[in-house]
Design a protein around this nucleic acid. Sequence first.
DNA 1: TTGACTTATATGTCTAGACATATAATCGTA
DNA 2: TACGATTATATGTCTAGACATATAAGTCAA
Lengths: 242, 242
Amino acid sequence: MSLATDGADKPTLYKRIRADIEKRILTGEWPPGHRIPFEHELVARYGCSRMTVNKALSELAQADLIERRRRAGSFVRRPQHQSAVLKIADIRAEITALGRAYGYELISRKLRAATAADRERLGVRKAGKVIAISCRHSADNVPFAVEDRLIDLASVPSAATADFSREPPGSWLLHHVPWTEAEHTISAIVADDRTAEALDIAVGAPCLVIDRYTWRSARTITAVRLLYPGESHRLVARFKGG
Amino acid sequence: MSLATDGADKPTLYKRIRADIEKRILTGEWPPGHRIPFEHELVARYGCSRMTVNKALSELAQADLIERRRRAGSFVRRPQHQSAVLKIADIRAEITALGRAYGYELISRKLRAATAADRERLGVRKAGKVIAISCRHSADNVPFAVEDRLIDLASVPSAATADFSREPPGSWLLHHVPWTEAEHTISAIVADDRTAEALDIAVGAPCLVIDRYTWRSARTITAVRLLYPGESHRLVARFKGG
DNA sequence: TTGACTTATATGTCTAGACATATAATCGTA
DNA sequence: TACGATTATATGTCTAGACATATAAGTCAA
């Protein structure tokens, strides 16, 4: 509309308060340990009610930028240097985001009674059926990652009839299983014969490994190992805090 | 009212509302796409004011568990399967948390005018001085990681006189530079001669690599490369969302 | 000096309203 | 039927209070 000159649209007051404080912390004007103004002081400065500044400060506390202590005040926290947001995108999304052509290929799919090794890997005790899947993702027809997955059929019965020859199991699960929790473990190995062939790299070349273990309400859903060529693939995590 | 009987302490009302809803989402009772009750319905159910349920729902929206749409209502989001919280702890903290003895050893420290390669690595244009540090972290006297770091003295002048023979540069920076932003890149390589010797592993053994690039207010602070023995070290990221 | 008790105060939570705003639904018209 | 205008409504933000509660700081006695 008419006011195209500068700062976009009008942010709400509590967002402006939050941004003001965040800026002073991030520029170092208010270093770690610094006591930021009391709520009543901010109320006076911005001419608003206490609930408004409280909302701003609560969000900063939730983001771990400040620490709030009763009776004492609110203080700039020391950066933690420890929690980063690591984007582990769906492989198809990752590849298409790079502007490359996504390719998928099912290598093997076996439905079997869970072996001792399967139960160990899934972290379940009871016997039951599992699906073991091996597949490959490629970008512009170059191998991008190989996937080795185990799905617990007791938790996801409908996986028995899913067609994994066209849809990657990761996408299928994402659309057929609601909210889950997961644990990722990242490590490095060197390619053995089988891996080297699947990824079209040399035996002994480095590989990045992501092991993901997924569950819902304490029930195991799936365990997957992803192998990437180590020198060409990178995981990027960007974050605030040292 | 008179609903006090049970044990534990009494969580506040908005936290109870948030936990109730979160539980229904996580157990799958309310699957992705499900419309959760309107604020006025929750107000009626819990017998509280709208601001209280609004606070609960706002926090769920901030955590990306629900999506709020004006006029339409609030809906359970589809899990993203893409952002994980990766804990990249301070190495000393990581080792002591494992109950092992932390050891630190400075391998080299050089103060020099930035070379073209240094400027490239730090992403700065202007000439200036840098400190290049190479050091090793160990756990119970076993090499744990080697660190190769560059610090931009224009941004952190006091680093020139810091004693890095006893304190790791990471810890020192953490305590002398306020809030920063960083980008981590994780990859895998195989050990060359120098790395193999420093980590006491075989040449050609896999290594996990973390490259961290740190800045504050668009100003580069430091660039560091951490090398871990790939098969013994693991990065763990745990999170919600598929 | 130490420990126990009291007090002051900043944050934590909550209320019962208010108006703003985006937008789904409905209605009316071409 | 398709499209534009209107309306209804759920969320977004805000207010001016309130009481609860943890705790820093001060007070006083042993």
